[in-house]
Design a protein around this nucleic acid. Sequence first.
DNA 1: TTTATTTACGAAACCGGTTTCGTAGATTTA
DNA 2: TAAATCTACGAAACCGGTTTCGTAAATAAA
Lengths: 337, 337
Amino acid sequence: MKKVNIKALAQELNLSSSTVSKALRDSYEISAATKQRVLEMAARLQYTPNAYASSLRGKKSKNIAVIIPEVADSFFSLAINGIEAAVKAKGYHVLIYLTHESFAAESAIMKEFYSGRVDGVLMSVSRETTDGQHIRQLMAQDIPVVFFDRALEELPVAKVLTDDYHSGYTAARHLIQNGCRRIAFLGMSETLSISHHRRAGYQHALQEYGLAATRKNMISCTADPAVNYKLVKKLLQQATPPDGIVASMEKLTTTVYQVCQALQLRMPADVKLVCFSNLEIATILQPSLTTITQPAFEMGKTAAELLLRQLEKKPVRQAEAVVIPSELVIRDSTKKS
Amino acid sequence: MKKVNIKALAQELNLSSSTVSKALRDSYEISAATKQRVLEMAARLQYTPNAYASSLRGKKSKNIAVIIPEVADSFFSLAINGIEAAVKAKGYHVLIYLTHESFAAESAIMKEFYSGRVDGVLMSVSRETTDGQHIRQLMAQDIPVVFFDRALEELPVAKVLTDDYHSGYTAARHLIQNGCRRIAFLGMSETLSISHHRRAGYQHALQEYGLAATRKNMISCTADPAVNYKLVKKLLQQATPPDGIVASMEKLTTTVYQVCQALQLRMPADVKLVCFSNLEIATILQPSLTTITQPAFEMGKTAAELLLRQLEKKPVRQAEAVVIPSELVIRDSTKKS
DNA sequence: TTTATTTACGAAACCGGTTTCGTAGATTTA
DNA sequence: TAAATCTACGAAACCGGTTTCGTAAATAAA
């Protein structure tokens, strides 16, 4: 099949390629009659402009990158839906890159973008990321970055977050109000700011009710499920084990339920659980799982909109931070005994 | 920050841009000493070649498209991991497009590719897709396509499938062997070939054991969970309801468990369930869920490798079809009463 | 009627690498 | 020593749109 480019199209119409180009872009320089002719012929020959030629000349690719730790996580997959919804309307394309929670991978990915492959970046940092040099460098190339969910707080970048501190507080308070006195916190990592916030909120609630947040009851989980299993098991095998758990990561749901089964702990009678999770199946677990549900779709959508605003050179407030609240969905795993 | 292009780099070195280009591409025309100098200076100035210029000239973008119905499904999110793993090593980038099960969306997406934005396409068709014209057209533009999981069988394209027929058979036989006599089948759609195959396998097993596959016990589900809920509820409220269910879609797990809870049906005593699913949480459901687990990661990886072979003009057998078997993972939801 | 302006279009430069082709100088072969 | 070949590099064409600039013809203003 012969590729029909703008020259071929122009030739067919006895016009110059500049005229055709302008006609297709609806320039005021071209008469209505000519535009009509061009449009019709373009449709008939199935002309599609070469994306690279346009990008090369226009310095715009209509591609945006989404950098996330993984896609097999309901928060991120829902966020992608939101991003896609926002971006599709404006004709942008979404490139997805996975860091697998590796800082090295994250840096390597961002280096690729110096070549102008994408116009902007949406990202949720890896659990290993503490330094933002790679992000600063990208921004120095005039490629805007917007964080969603997991951000590096010190960077002067737009961010879309949820109320992690408050959610941690709410989760812990809910457990307290339902009778828990020894509440454990399962963090995602030592480095992630959102994990810190959730824990701080949790600690605040405990303090407010005069409860102790002991070191033993605050665990930082890993990327390895087997290790997490052992950590949680050890936690629940203490002499006076916790009677409530705030788990700050969706992946930990399975772990906690498994450990409870293994140790023959009844939930919610022996231990109650609140998990930060967007899993649909929370309702059919036994007991059904009380969750802090993040507005994943909205966060993705909002982050994308913020990025698009920057790409369209709209007035951008430096380091705008949007907070969309999460929701405590009460189910049976925290039911008062 | 000034963009350092090849001309700037050449000037800095007192060389021509052609020489620099060749040096960077390790051409035999350039002396080792010069290559060394160029490489060093390129590193020092942080030179990164413009992706569009290369693509425009070379007719290659190093982008591949992944077209899937949705990303919030563990099969697809795991498959993406596999694709990404295969593709990263070769320096390709992954563009993800979601059809949301809409044929119109799928066609529109593929039209975008005429512009050469991607070198090849990996796809799982939408549930509405029965006609392959949009795919043929793309292939006519010399853009190779590889199907994974959900394929249009009549197209002469490489495919990576799992043994759907056999899995349907295995699932049903497993139920029969564990005492079920009235086994229902929940299909994904009337049109998807994989759904047909699974059902055909299911029917084969029933026939083999002299059981009837009644029309009432074969449901075709929709994209709307509420509708599915009603369908399944109706199914289980029959005068003589099924005592076993083969569900061919992960999304139906939640539905079936919910209906059983609502109708106070005990699983596996009253009804046993096998579900095609890659959900990690199958183990912690009550009862834990017997699944047909698809090799999602491997299928994605294999499909990507097949595509890469075509992109590298390696010998390609016309319409190669790779089948990777699924696995029956027996848990409590099918336990003999 | 003459001048000024508008309309509609084409020639050519441009984006930034890549590749073809030509060639000066060095080296090898006859 | 002359002819043939090789080595290492540069000039320029090229990929395919986009945009600037120039201009003939048509129209409006003086």
